[in-house]
């Protein structure tokens, strides 16, 4: 069990930023490879801040990517490169997180491999469970044994 260290610090730092700062996406669920706008509101000069994306935060496959600087009116275009959970952060020149937002990035198209693994695993596990359970229950009345410990 790992400690809470990394993300709690991130969360506290991000949440401790000016209350008015806010990151907003054009769409609730961004899609891999599809450009969309990210809006930053509630800061005096948005052009001093940079948008960063952490894909799969706190996982072993975590990667970080610098998207670029916001325009003065607090806008930047971003095209997600990986599916999964990601954390968007607006950071200042000292790399301090001003505001953060989690997003779930969707696949560009239904992943066939994922569907196949899901169906294969589901059929294997549930059919296996049902067949073996049925075999256990249909294999006769158990011998009831009372062992004497001496």
């Amino acid at each position: 069990m790992k400690t809470l260290m990394l993300t709690v610090v991130l969360l506290v730092v991000a949440a401790g930023a000016p209350v008015a700062a806010d990151l907003d996406l054009g769409e609730d669920f961004p899609v891999v490879g599809k450009p969309q706008s990210v809006f930053l509101a509630g800061v005096e000069d948005a052009s001093t801040l940079t948008l960063w994306v952490i894909y799969s935060p706190t996982s072993e496959t975590q990667t970080e990517e610098e998207v670029g600087r916001f325009t003065t009116d607090g806008r930047i275009d971003w095209s997600p490169s990986r599916f999964g959970i990601a954390t968007l952060t607006a950071r200042d020149a000292d790399d301090t997180v001003v505001v953060g937002e989690n997003v779930a990035i969707l696949f560009a198209a239904t992943p066939i491999a994922g569907v196949l693994v899901m169906v294969f695993a589901g059929v294997l596990l549930f059919a296996g469970a049902v067949v073996s359970m049925w075999s256990v229950l249909s294999s006769g009345v158990p011998e009831r044994l009372q062992r004497i410990d001496t």
Binding site: E60, F83, A104, F107, A113, G114
Partner: peptide, 24 residues
Amino acid sequence: LPGGIEGILYLFTPDFSVMADVGI
């Protein structure tokens, strides 16, 4: 819920680029 199905697909879609990692 919106996005719920995609979450499930994320659980099952293999990413072969990281599967070579012995840690996994």
